[in-house]
Design a protein around this nucleic acid. Structure first.
Lengths: 203, 203
DNA sequence: GTCTATACGCCGATAGAC
DNA sequence: GTCTATCGGCGTATAGAC
């Protein structure tokens, strides 16, 4: 039983390289414009066959990415909800997270905000039915109950609030807005929050 | 020179049938999941070859759709701008148009709001650089000058305003919101307008 | 367990009969 | 000018040598 001290990567390291390369290409060119050859070349794994050591097919790469991103998001949101009880602060936490991710991991946010997941993974639950986004809706619902958020349909509040947030981030990702997400963060938070908050005293 | 009184369709009628069928399929399954065979079967034209009588290739079908939709939008927006000078009323006109289209021509709005046009037509200008959407931005800019709209970056005002509008419509199109667009129209208009309007006295 | 070679199918596109 | 037949190629996927 030799030690693994050679330059050969472990299985999980390779798998990760494939996922990272795939995410980048998917975000840049789209899933259907990306071939397995592209992914093999962009990742350390230089051959298409090697990809099949880790994934059954092309779809399962996208699937794994989707799961990983949502899992990670889920953890972050749990974390945020644990830190405070107030809906406003929880929402603020989510918004800060989204803006930070847009600057530090734009491919991840591109996957979440601009890629047509249902075309790529027709089997998968749509975003808004996933655990992570259900939790965000719960934050809004409890905000309504607590009187922090105006008494409107939580689904609509969600639509409005994240309409502003996500559209701003989408425009950053596409270059339509040309500064970093961070540059728009506080102003956009205020706009979105005041829209749904009970007392809109800021303006 | 015989008269054309037979049941055979004219060239432009056929072309239109192809476009309608393609639009429907693209909106339902996505461009890359739709084959020319699918389009041929769904349109009156029963054979793939016949499609090539009207279009050079698959892309040019999507291209023609894109152009037609944007042209039509352009005309409507010109019309709206001609009817009134006030930015608020012009924006209201655009919003009413979008909501109406979402109910009466959901495939058109799906093409505009959820399809990844740049993946399908990499050559085409992105939506926000098209004439129609430049005009919408102009409406906002003149609203700022006229003092109707708060003095913020017009691009941001645009991001916020249509963030709300488009996200709501997107949720209607995907079924995340389960009533017709019309059911949300006035409430959503108010939310979006008050967000950018100078005096937010409504709430 | 990694690469070569190759199979296989689908789809876009064309040629050519009628 | 419409359909049949078919091509060519790409991209996914696999078999098998080493």
């Amino acid at each position: 039983m030799e030690q693994e001290l050679n330059t050969t990567q472990t299985k999980s390291e390779q798998q990760n390289e494939i996922l990272v390369a795939a995410l980048k290409l998917f975000a840049e060119k789209g899933y259907f414009n990306t071939s397995l050859t592209d992914i093999a070349e962009a990742s350390g794994v230089k051959t298409v066959s090697a990809i099949y050591q880790h994934f059954n097919n092309k779809q399962s790469i996208a699937n794994k990415l989707y799961e990983n991103i949502l899992d990670s998001l889920n953890v972050s949101i749990d974390d945020i909800r644990r830190r405070t009880q107030k809906s406003s602060e929880q929402l603020r936490g989510v918004v800060d997270l989204f803006f930070k991710l847009t600057d530090t991991a734009p491919t991840v946010m591109t996957f979440l905000l601009v890629m047509p997941v249902h075309e790529i993974l027709p089997e998968q639950k749509p975003l808004f039915e996933t655990s992570a986004f259900t939790k965000i809706l719960k934050i809004i619902q409890s905000g309504v109950r607590a009187g922090e958020i105006r008494n409107i349909d939580p689904l609509l509040a969600n639509a409005y609030f994240f309409g502003i947030i996500n559209n701003t981030l989408r425009m950053v990702l596409t270059g339509e807005l040309n500064k970093s997400a961070e540059a728009y963060r506080s102003q956009t938070w205020l706009a979105a929050w005041n829209l749904v908050a009970k007392k809109s005293s800021v303006f």
